[in-house]
Nucleic acid binder design. Structure first.
Length: 555
RNA sequence: UCCCCGAUAGCUCAAUCGGUAGAGCGAGCGGCUGUUAACCGCUAGGUUGUAGGUUCGAGCCCUACUCGGGGAGCCA
């Protein structure tokens, strides 16, 4: 683990041939540097830092093994807090955070002065003695004896105070360095690793399906058109159809990659480009698929719980809720779900929720009025004024959220109450159902008309298909969609015909039903939605390094 | 495509009835021996998203547009 998370900085530079390295040195941004006490002052480049010797270079996650020793950390300044005779520099190095204490008596005057004026996100290597210190984030601190500033950062745009969504996305390349983005990135890494591990351990064969494709999996309206040497094709919205072909070779296969949807969705659950893993299995039935999905999701949760406790803590995730995610997951058929949505229990559930929201809004309003009255009366101490201002900002933000929720609640209630059999479940319907459970919820057997052409018609009830969605609990909504695939040639060909698709595009797909067709099925899990659910992050745009959304693609 | 909300200093936000723009953070300088979103003092920083309109007077009211946020539809 530690080796994986360690920065490749030193080794990468070392790998550059020395002739090119000289070049880099010449072109390197000259930086102010600080000599060891008594040494010469001047300018140094990053390459010279790489080449220098000195105390053992360690990373923050290794500090506990070096208590009492003098070591060198390399990283970036998270926060700098100088004062007259002692300064505190919080350094992060990609593996963790460490407080570095700069005592005036222990370092040269030049170094003390330079560190005093060092801006947030400056890069440096910093040497000192390790000691246990509960007040330091991470539990260890460095008593500084020397430091080399590699690249001072002036006016770093992201400040310790809050920022808006738009600003942070515009600065996503820098925002990735923030604590929260770092934690989510590490959880995502675990999720992706757990996904691969699960399928590999279960004997699945990885098949990489094409990105450029002529086929539509779900419907032709939601695809990104691409000019492929003059031929109109589009970016894959699923690897499934290809995967079905591969499943007839390996029996159990999966694909894992980016997928593209041109849906004009502006919600916290949608991205135009997201990562999806899709298993496909020959000789399985719907029950087998549900079991597979159940074990799969449980394995992902277990891996995160094992490896990312501290990240979950920093993210303020509800860990006990994750620990409750064990098989079996509750199961409902679509028809049962419709009854629930239209039923009294749902109406009461939503009414209770509305009442609760209104109570909370009233409380917020009262508090705002209180503070405003306090401010109007005047004569407040400066710190009190400031505290009030901060609280007002938070309260007003909460008021906006609550107002939106109160406005949406009756709309969602109406959608649920007026739900008629045959429609697909909407986002709000799924949210309601999932909010009623504290485990992921399977909903199966949707109406044929609301679902994709390839789903297998239930032979016992021909108006529905053998499919399922898995809804994450606590209102997050759908993270998996899957189905048995229609394996009967005439039925599938008929469906393609009914929907008016171009049969020529589907000849190879129909071949799979011509030659040795077998019952088979699979599902797709959205990585970002899964990460958002697990971390408690409300918007999936924070669960991918560089999100692509409708009308938004900054970098 | 539709519905709701928003745009004021680098950032987050104030600005009473329509009366001529203010805080905090960040930046710069100074002070402080243990801080941890430290604290204290000083300094700089604005054509209020764009274009029109109403008015003696518009950040505030009206119209259109642009950009952004939330939601519906659609979906992982």
């Amino acid at each position: 683990m530690p080796t994986q998370s360690r920065l490749p900085f030193t080794s990468d530079v070392d790998r550059i041939p020395s002739c090119q390295r000289a070049d880099i040195c010449e072109n390197a941004h000259p930086v102010a540097w600080l000599a060891t006490p008594g040494g010469p002052a001047g300018e140094r480049s990053i390459c010279q830092w790489v080449q220098q010797g000195g105390p053992m270079k360690v990373t923050v996650d290794e500090l506990q093994e070096h208590v009492g020793a003098e070591v060198t950390l390399s990283g970036w300044v998270v926060h700098n807090r100088p004062s007259g005779k002692v300064g505190f520099v919080i350094v992060r190095d990609g593996t963790g955070l460490c407080q570095c204490v700069v005592e005036k008596t222990r370092v040269s005057d030049d170094l003390f002065e330079a560190l005093k004026h060092l801006g947030t996100e400056s890069s440096l290597s910093i040497t000192g003695t390790v000691r246990a210190e509960p007040r330091s984030p991470g539990g260890h601190e460095l008593v500084v004896t020397d430091a080399t500033i590699l690249c001072p950062a002036v006016d770093y745009p992201i400040t310790p105070k809050e920022h808006g969504v738009d600003f942070l996305l515009r600065h996503r390349h820098l925002h990735l360095r923030s604590q929260r983005a770092w934690c989510i990135g590490r959880v995502r890494h675990t999720v992706v690793d757990a996904i691969r591990r699960f399928f590999n351990d279960e004997g699945f064969i990885l098949v990489d399906t094409p990105i450029f494709t002529t086929l539509a999996g779900e419907g032709e309206q939601t695809l990104f058109a691409v000019d492929y040497f003059g031929q109109p094709v589009h970016l894959a919205q699923t690897g499934q159809l290809y995967l079905e072909a591969a499943a007839m070779s390996h029996r159990k296969v999966y694909c894992f990659g980016p997928t593209f949807r041109a849906e004009k969705s502006k919600t916290r659950r949608h991205l135009a480009e997201f990562w999806m893993v899709e298993p496909e299995v020959a000789f399985i039935d719907l029950d087998g698929l549900l079991g597979l999905a159940e074990r799969f999701v449980t394995a992902i949760i277990q891996a995160v719980l094992e490896r990312n406790r501290s990240e979950l803590q920093t993210l303020e995730t509800d860990v006990p809720a994750l620990e409750r995610i064990t098989p079996p997951f509750p199961r409902l058929t679509y028809s049962q779900a419709v009854d629930i949505l239209r039923g009294e229990r749902t109406a009461r559930f939503l009414a209770d929720e509305l009442a609760d929201l209104q109570r909370r809004l009233a409380k917020v309003e009262t508090r705002i009025a209180q503070i405003e009255a306090e401010d109007a009366r005047g004569g407040l101490k400066k710190w009190k004024q400031e505290k009030n201002a901060q609280e007002l900002i938070a309260l007003r933000r909460e008021r906006i959220d609550l107002t939106a929720a109160i406005e949406n609640n009756p709309k969602h209630a109406a959608l649920a109450a007026e739900f008629t059999w045959g429609k697909d479940l909407g986002g709000s319907d799924e949210t309601i159902l999932s909010r009623m459970h504290d485990k992921p919820l399977f909903v199966t057997h949707y109406p044929k008309a609301a679902k994709a052409f390839y789903m297998k018609v239930d032979r016992a009830e021909e108006r529905v298909v053998e499919n399922f969605d898995l809804l994450a609990p606590a209102g997050f909504g759908e993270i998996i969609g899957g189905s048995m695939r229609e394996d009967d040639y005439p039925r599938l060909a008929g469906r393609i015909d009914e929907l008016g698709y171009n049969p020529e595009h589907y000849q190879w797909y129909l071949d799979l039903r011509r030659y040795g067709s077998v019952p088979h099925g699979g599902f797709g899990l959205g990585v970002e939605r899964t990460v958002a659910w697990i971390t408690g992050e409300r918007h999936i745009r924070h669960c991918i390094a560089f999100p692509r959304m409708m009308d938004r693609l900054y970098l």
